[in-house]
Simulated scan of single mutants.
Amino acid sequence: MNALWYYAIGFVVIWTLAFLFKDKLKIEMEGPIILRKTTRMRDFIDSVAQKSPKLWRWVMNGGIVMAVFLMAFIVYYLVASLETVAVNPQVSIVLPGVEIPGSPIYLPFGYGLIGLITVIVIHEFGHGILARVEKVKIKSLGVGLLAILPIAFVEPDDEEVNKLGSVSKLRIFAAGSIFNMMLAALAIAIYFILTLFLIPYALPAAGLEIMSVVPGSPADGILQEGMLIQTINGNSVTDRDSFSQVIQELTVGDQVIIGTDQGTYSITTGVNPNSTSSAYIGIKSQEKHVVSEGLSNILGESIPWVLVYLAELFMWIFTLNFGIGLFNLLPLKPFDGGLIFEEILGNWTSERVTRACTYAMSIFCLSLVLINLGYGFLAAII
Rank of each mutant, 00 (worst) to 15 (best):
V271H: 05
A184D: 05
G253C: 04
T231E: 07
S236G: 08
S177G: 12
D241L: 12
A185K: 09
P204D: 11
R171H: 08
D239K: 14
P200N: 11
S244Q: 10
F197I: 13
S177L: 12
L194T: 06
G259W: 00
P218I: 00
I210P: 02
Q245R: 13
T231Y: 00
F179R: 03
I188L: 14
V271I: 15
A189G: 12
Y191C: 01
L198C: 01
K163M: 02
G270T: 02
I190D: 03
T231G: 00
E249D: 11
A184S: 12
V256G: 08
D261C: 06
I193T: 06
Q262D: 03
A205N: 15
V167F: 06
T269G: 04
S166K: 15
Q224D: 10
D261N: 14
M211I: 15
G259T: 07
A202E: 03
D261H: 09
S244F: 08
S177M: 12
S168T: 05
I258D: 05
I193C: 02
Q262Y: 07
I258W: 07
L194E: 04
S244V: 00
N272P: 06
K169S: 01
A184H: 12
Q255V: 04
L203C: 11
I178K: 04
F243T: 07
I229G: 02
N180I: 14
L164V: 06
L228I: 12
Q224V: 10
T264L: 02
A206L: 08
M211W: 10
I222S: 03
V271K: 14
N235T: 03
D239E: 13
Y191I: 02
S217A: 13
Q262L: 05
A206E: 15
A187P: 15
T195L: 10
I178T: 05
P200Y: 04
G263W: 06
Q224N: 14
V252N: 08
M182I: 15
S244W: 04
F197W: 12
Y201K: 14
G165L: 05
Q248F: 03
L170H: 06
V256N: 10
G216T: 10
I199D: 01
M227V: 03
P156N: 03
T238R: 15
Y191L: 11
N180G: 09
V256M: 06
L170A: 08
I257R: 15
Q262R: 13
A205T: 15
V252M: 10
P215R: 15
N162K: 15
P200I: 08
F153R: 08
I190T: 05
T195Y: 04
M181P: 00
L194C: 08
V161S: 00
A174R: 11
A202S: 13
V271W: 06
S166A: 09
S244G: 00
F173C: 07
E159D: 14
G263M: 05
L194M: 11
K163W: 01
V271Q: 13
L228K: 13
P200G: 06
D157T: 11
L250Y: 02
F197K: 15
A189L: 14
G165H: 07
L228F: 06
D239C: 13
I210E: 07
V167W: 11
P215G: 11
A189T: 14
P218A: 01
V213G: 02
F173R: 11
P156T: 02
S212W: 12
E225Y: 10
A206S: 15
L250N: 01
L183E: 02
